[in-house]
Design a protein around this nucleic acid. Structure first.
Lengths: 250, 250
DNA sequence: GAACAACTTGACCGATCGGTTCATTTATTC
DNA sequence: GAATAAATGAACCGATCGGTCAAGTTGTTC
C-alpha cells in the first residue's frame, strides 16, 4: 500500500499525517472536540491509533493542528479584503462576500468554532484569532459608527458576523425546514443579497445620523471623528469588484 | 440529612431529582453533552452516581429532562408575545425584548442549544422546538416581508434570532475583549437598543418597498399579500408596553 | 549490505466510562 | 411495630478511553 510521499515531487498523495488531520477535522466538526476519540480518528484515516500520538503527541495537539490548518485558511481568506484601501462601504461588502464564501465552503468548521466560542474556557488559539478578526472589523467600522450606543461598532460586529456564521451553523437544520440546501445555489445567493441589503440599510442610516449630527453642530466640534464619510451613494448596490469572487463560486 | 420532599407541602427543599437536574444543567451548558459523565453530575449534586440512572434511566434521559425543563421556560417566555394581537411591528419588538431577556438570563443554555443546532444529527426535541419557533416568527414576518428574495422572511428570521442569541453565546469571550459583562447592565441595554434599531430599519425599508411596489402596480394585483400594513410610524421607538418587562429586569 | 532514521504496528496499561445489582436505609401505611 | 414501597449507597461489570512501549518495517545514505 502506498502510504508515504515525503520528498518525492511526483505523486502528491496525502501523507499519513494529513490523512489523520483530515479525518480529525471531519470528526471534530461533526461531534465536537469532546466525543471524538483517538481510535475514531485513526479508524477513519485507516491507520492505527498509536499514530495519532506519534504525530501529534496527544489529543489536544491534534486539535490544535486542526485549528491551525483552519485559521491559516481563514486568515488568508479575509486579509486581502480587510487590508484593501477602498472606502468603508466597499470593504464591508467585500468582507461579507469573503466571509460568507469561506464559511459556506467550510460550514462544518462554523459549528466547531461557534461551539468553541461559547466555551467559557476556550482555546487560546481561538481567542487569539477571534480577537484579531474583532479588532480588524470593529476598527474599520469605527470610521462610520460610534464607539457606543445603539449603532456602536461593537454591536454591528456581532450582528454582521452573526448574520454570516449563523446561516452556516443553522444550515443542517434549516435545510430540512426549507427543503433546499442553504450552503449552495439560490439560497446561499439569497443570503448574500440579504446581508448586503442589511449592511446597506445600516450604512445608510449611519450616514443620515452623521448628517443630522453635523447639521446640529455649528462649528467644528471635537467629539466626532472628522472626515469620516461614506463615499458611495446611499444603498447603492455593492460595487461590482468584490462580486467577482462570489460569481466565480457557486 | 434532608433529602426528600415528595408530597409534604411544608418544606420546599429541592428534591434529589431536582438537584441532579440542576447539576446536569450546569455541566451540560459548560462542556456540552459529550464531556459530561454521570459521575460528574452526581458529584456536583452531592449524591451517588447510581441515582442518575435510578431517576433518568440513562444519560440520554437526563439530557432530555434538562432540555424539557429548558424548553418549558423558553416557550412560556415567548408565547405571550407571539400570540398577542398587536400589529407586526409591536410583536417583533416585543419578541426581541422577550427573547433577549430570556437568553441573557439563561445564557449558558444559549451555547448548549446553539451547539445542538449545529449538530447534524440533533435531538428531536431541539428540532421540534426550533421548528416551532421558526414557523411562529417566520409566519408573523410574512405579513410584512416577501417569502423569497433579499428581504425574505426566512432571511429576517435568521438575522434577528442570530442577533439575539449570538450576543449571549459570544458573551464569555466578548466580555473579556470589552472589559465589561455583556449580559447585564449597560452593555445588555445597548444590545437591546441596537436590535430594536435594526428591526426598525428593516421594517421601515420593507414599508418603503411595499409602497413603491403598490405605486408601480395600477389596479389590485393578486400577487402580494393584501392589507398587509405596518400600522406604526416609520422607525418610531418601540411602543412602551413591551418595555415594562425589560425595565423590570436590572 | 550495514547503519540509520522515519514510520508503523499491535499489545498493553491504568483510569474512567455508562450502566447494573443488591443490600440497606428511610418514610408511609396499616 | 410490622409491612411495604421509595430512595439511597456501595460495590461491581465489561467496554472504552487516552496514552505508552517495544518490536518491527520501510526507505535513505554510506
Amino acid at each position: 500500500m502506498p502510504r508515504r510521499a515525503a520528498p518525492e515531487p511526483k505523486p502528491p498523495e496525502p501523507s499519513t499525517k494529513e490523512q489523520l488531520l483530515t479525518a480529525a477535522e471531519e470528526l471534530f466538526c461533526k461531534v465536537g472536540y469532546e466525543g471524538v476519540s483517538a481510535g475514531d480518528v485513526a479508524r477513519l484515516a485507516g491507520v492505527r491509533k498509536s499514530l495519532v500520538f506519534y504525530y501529534f503527541g496527544n489529543m489536544a495537539g491534534l486539535f490544535e493542528a486542526v485549528l491551525e490548518r483552519y485559521y491559516a485558511a481563514h486568515t488568508q481568506a479575509l486579509t486581502g479584503v480587510l487590508s484593501a484601501d477602498d472606502d468603508v462601504r466597499t470593504r464591508m461588502h467585500g468582507l461579507v462576500d469573503a466571509y460568507l464564501d469561506f464559511m459556506a465552503s467550510h460550514a462544518r468548521y462554523a459549528s466547531l468554532v461557534q461551539a468553541q466560542l461559547a466555551n467559557p474556557n476556550l482555546h487560546p488559539m481561538v481567542e487569539k484569532n477571534f480577537g484579531l478578526l474583532y479588532h480588524l472589523v470593529e476598527g474599520a467600522l469605527l470610521e462610520v459608527a460610534p464607539r457606543t450606543g445603539r449603532a456602536a461598532s461593537r454591536q454591528l460586529f456581532v450582528t454582521v458576523s452573526g448574520a454570516v456564521i449563523n446561516w452556516c451553523t443553522y444550515a443542517p437544520l434549516l435545510s430540512r425546514l426549507m427543503g433546499d440546501d442553504l450552503l449552495t445555489g439560490p439560497l446561499l445567493e439569497e443570503r448574500r443579497a440579504h446581508i448586503h441589503w442589511l449592511v446597506g440599510l445600516v450604512l445608510d442610516a449611519l450616514e443620515r445620523e452623521e448628517e443630522t449630527a453635523a447639521k446640529a453642530r455649528p462649528g467644528a466640534k471635537l467629539n466626532a471623528k472628522p472626515g469620516a464619510k461614506l463615499n458611495a451613494k446611499p444603498n447603492a448596490k455593492p460595487p461590482a469588484k468584490p462580486r467577482q469572487r462570489a460569481a466565480a463560486r457557486r
